[in-house]
């Protein structure tokens, strides 16, 4: 959620049970302004919290000119001092998924170790080669944030437009979804490089607007029902919760451009989802 409307937005997603203490909120309000200035971001989002056993990571996301590609994630343990997270590469994601298990510890320098035994050679004398993968928690954090963003970052349809130059930018004339539209998952999109677009039939694409419909809709997510859509706050605010990443809450006030998402959770994916629906 945008750091400029932090107070208001946090109140709207509070239905999930997590809020920030006044101290944290005020600290964020001042530190994120500095962050924006120092890193020359065009806007800064408060991304969320990852709850570790001994500590809590606060995550902020800086956005550049292109809202989809120019992203930088930063973390902090005290809401004031921010450290840049490394971008998540494919090899890093693989390492992390192999080595890490369980909860975050809350210490960025904590090292996860994972031993892998490769069998080589044939016949009666297989040679066991041990390979140890070590991953720091900072890397794990970077991967978790990247994955959450890739899988469950949500925007209402029309809030971001693709300019003719191919840049994804905030749509200043976005007036919000109507209440009827906000009841349908089709109108909420993933803010990520589209994956399912090519599979769509021509009939579906007939009335699409190329400036708006360049993202995947939540309604195509697998498994069906991995989102919980509710109206909260005296049924005025549309609140979406991801069941895949428990802790991700998205809000949108119909008929206004206000929307945003926050993740407050333990940073682990709900692998049991298929059994739970």
């Amino acid at each position: 959620m945008d750091s400029n409307s932090l107070y208001y937005s946090l109140e709207l997603v509070a239905g999930s049970g997590h809020i920030l203490t006044p101290e944290q909120r005020t600290a964020l309000e001042s530190s994120l302004v500095l962050l924006k200035k120092n890193y020359k971001f065009s806007r800064v989002l408060f991304w969320g919290k990852i709850l570790g056993i001994n500590g809590v990571y606060f995550i902020a996301q800086g956005r550049g000119e292109d809202e989809m590609k120019d992203k930088k994630n930063l973390y902090s343990l005290n809401c004031m001092d921010w450290f840049l997270l490394p971008p998540a590469s494919d090899s890093m994601i693989e390492e992390v998924s192999k080595a890490t298990k369980g909860r975050f510890m809350g210490d960025p320098s904590f090292v996860y170790e994972h031993q892998e035994i490769h069998r080589q050679g044939e016949g009666n004398e297989p040679v066991n080669e041990k390979a140890v993968i070590t991953v720091t928690e900072e890397k794990r954090l970077a991967v978790a944030v990247h994955q959450i963003d890739a899988e469950v970052s949500v925007v209402p349809r029309g809030a971001f437009i693709k300019s003719p130059r191919g840049l994804v930018q905030l749509n200043r004339s976005f007036g919000g979804l109507s209440e009827a539209e906000a009841r349908k998952l089709d109108n909420f999109l993933h803010l990520r490089q589209s994956k399912n677009m090519k599979k769509k039939s021509i009939l579906d694409m007939g009335d699409w607007n190329p400036a708006m419909d360049y993202l995947d809709a939540l309604s195509d997510d697998i498994p069906k029902g991995s989102w919980s859509l509710q109206f909260e706050f005296a049924r005025k605010v549309c609140v979406l919760r991801s069941l895949l990443w428990l802790g991700l809450t998205f809000y949108h006030v119909p008929m206004t451009p206000q929307h945003g998402y926050i993740y407050i959770g333990d940073g682990t994916k709900n692998l049991d989802l298929p059994f739970m629906l």
């Binding site: 049970g17 809020i19 203490t21």
Partner: peptide
């Protein structure tokens, strides 16, 4: 609870 960073928001709590 607000001090503790937990809660449902002030309005909701009042309701």
């Amino acid at each position: 609870l607000e001090q503790a960073g937990v809660g449902l928001g002030r309005d909701e709590m009042q309701r």
